[in-house]
């Protein structure tokens, strides 16, 4: 039975290979219940693959993922009731308007029609999507797609939110709104995992971080521990062992 003592997410030895490329190499992560967790790493480090395996959208080659103690790959239905997910770049029911998408998914989950209508109204209003009442999702801008995706993740009031790059392509005003919503959710005891490569943002909103590089966890824990004395960005560059390029070459680039 899931309890609050169980971590919101625990992955044990998660592994995924694409052809000869090891995308995720034995990842162990523990996301404490009630935490706001930032998963950071360079492009291609395995963040998206890890999150997809953790929520049940990609079958791992090895390892386990548990959400509040529920095995994602054994008790799939129970695990799905606990989480709200925003994957990166997936399609949606493109020929529906934003309101129709939320109504459809709420009814499909078996929520009461009145509850669905009420939540849909509020979500569209808070995320400022209600002005596009006649626009089909296929015509949405990238930022609008992120926002409707977030609304979908929130609709059934999950206990854990797993959001892949929730702030990418979102304008500053909407980003502030989303941050406020997520903070409130975490303040009320909800757990949030976001992936990002914007260090300043992670530092601002998260209380725990995990750093992934080349498919492995190179550091994880409370934010203060991981970043030490400096900024998260300095710690990150140290951890992934990259040197910052850009000061050499490109001599011709003079306007």
């Amino acid at each position: 039975m899931p309890t609050h003592q169980e971590p919101a997410l625990r992955t044990t030895g998660l592994r995924k290979t694409f052809g000869h490329h090891v995308a995720v190499d034995d990842i162990d992560l523990v996301v404490p219940a009630g935490s706001f967790y930032g998963l950071v790493g360079p492009n291609g480090a395995g963040k998206t693959t890890t999150l997809a395996m953790a929520v049940g959208l990609l079958r791992p080659d090895a390892g386990r993922a548990e959400i509040f103690g529920v095995d994602v790959w054994r008790d799939t239905v129970q695990a799905k009731q606990l989480i709200g997910v925003l994957p990166d770049g997936n399609a949606m029911p493109e020929r529906l308007t934003g309101r129709e998408v939320l109504t459809y998914l709420g009814l499909l989950r078996g929520l009461d029609p009145d509850v669905v209508a009420e939540r849909t109204d509020e979500l569209l209003q808070v995320l400022e999507l209600d002005s596009a009442e006649r626009t089909l999702v296929i015509e949405y801008s990238t930022g609008m797609r992120k926002k409707i995706g977030l609304a979908i993740a929130l609709l059934h009031a999950p206990r854990l939110l797993v959001l892949d790059e929730p702030f990418e392509a979102v304008d500053p005003v909407s980003a502030a709104t989303i941050k406020a919503i997520l903070r409130r959710f975490a303040g009320n005891g909800g757990s949030v995992i976001i992936s990002s490569h914007v260090m300043a943002l992670v530092e601002q909103v998260c209380d725990h971080v995990g750093v992934i590089s080349d498919g492995r966890v190179v550091a994880a824990g409370p934010l203060a521990e991981v970043r030490g004395a400096g900024t998260l960005e300095d710690a990150f560059v140290d951890l992934v062992g990259a040197h910052t390029a850009g000061s050499e070459g490109l001599a011709w680039l003079t306007p």
Binding site: P87, G89, N90, M92, P93, E94, L108, R109
Partner: peptide, 18 residues
């Protein structure tokens, strides 16, 4: 033809049958 929109069906408990 619907593409990766299938993820929503897979993430909704028991929605495959519907």
């Amino acid at each position: 033809s619907d593409g990766t929109a299938l993820w929503l069906t897979l993430m909704t408990p028991g929605a495959e049958r519907s």
